[in-house]
Amino acid sequence: MEITKEAICGTLESNDLLVKVAPRNELEVVISSEVMRQFGVRIREVVEETLLQMGVTRGQVVIEDKGALDCAIRARVQAAVLRGCECDELNWGVL
């Protein structure tokens, strides 16, 4: 999938995260988290795995994490990417 426009998804409330995506020529994932020291590596893993599943190889993904669970991270990243790809049809097979 190709990110063609800037998009935002999620909130900054506790246990949630805000995801922003933007078109770029390379893939870049930027993460800020309140629990960076303990979970920074895990958050990155989940985000990168989610992007890989969706076939996103280019674009900037900025994450502001407020201690979200993996399931929320997956959901918010997926929704942000779909918005950024202007894609309305989900391929459930890759989620």
Binding site: E6, A7, I8, L12
Partner: peptide
């Protein structure tokens, strides 16, 4: 309270989704 957080969250959502200002 967490009102400032909710407010700024709403501002960012409104600006992005309704006005196209993500930055």
């Amino acid at each position: 309270t967490s009102l400032s957080l909710k407010l700024m969250n709403e501002v960012q959502q409104v600006a992005s989704i309704e006005r196209g200002h993500n930055h």
